[in-house]
Amino acid sequence: MLALIAGTGALPTEVVAQLTEQPLICAMEGFLPDDLTADIVFPLEQLGSFIADLTVQGVTEICLAGAVRRPPIDPTRIDAATMPLVPVIQKAIMSGDDGALRAVIGILENAGLHVRAAHEIAPGLLPPLGCLTEAQPSDADMADADRAAGILRAIGIADTGQACAVSRGQALAIEGIFGTSWMLQTLTQRPDAGGGILFKGPKPDQDRRADLPAIGPDTVTDAVAAGLSGIVLEKGGVLVLQQDHVIAECNRLGLFLYIRERAV
Score class of each variant (00 low, 15 high):
Cys131Ile: 02
Gly112Asp: 01
Glu120His: 08
Arg190Asn: 09
Leu64Met: 06
Ala103Asn: 06
Ser167Asp: 00
Ala173Trp: 00
Asp74Trp: 04
Arg153Lys: 05
Ser167Ala: 08
Cys63Val: 15
Asp146Met: 03
Leu85Cys: 05
Ile107Trp: 05
Gly99Asp: 00
Pro128Ser: 15
Ala165His: 09
His119Asp: 15
Pro87Ala: 01
Ile155Val: 13
Ala135Thr: 11
Ile105Trp: 08
Pro84Glu: 06
Pro137Tyr: 04
Leu152Ser: 00
Val56Arg: 06
Gly161Pro: 01
Ile177Thr: 12
Gly150Gln: 08
Leu101Ala: 05
Leu108Thr: 11
Ser49Val: 05
Ile155Glu: 11
Ala111His: 12
Thr82Phe: 10
Glu109Pro: 07
Ala117Thr: 02
Leu126Ser: 07
Ala103Met: 03
Leu113Pro: 08
Leu132Ser: 13
Ala135Asp: 06
Asp159Trp: 03
Val88Ile: 14
Glu120Gln: 12
Leu152Cys: 01
Gly99Val: 00
Glu175His: 09
Pro84Asp: 03
Ala143Phe: 09
Met83Ala: 15
Ile155Gly: 02
Gly176Trp: 00
Ala67Gln: 05
Pro128Lys: 14
Pro72Ala: 13
Asp97Ala: 00
Asp79Gly: 10
Glu175Leu: 11
Arg70Ile: 15
Gln57Asp: 12
Ala158Thr: 07
Leu184Gly: 06
Ile89Asn: 10
Gln189Ala: 13
Met94Lys: 14
Ser167Ile: 00
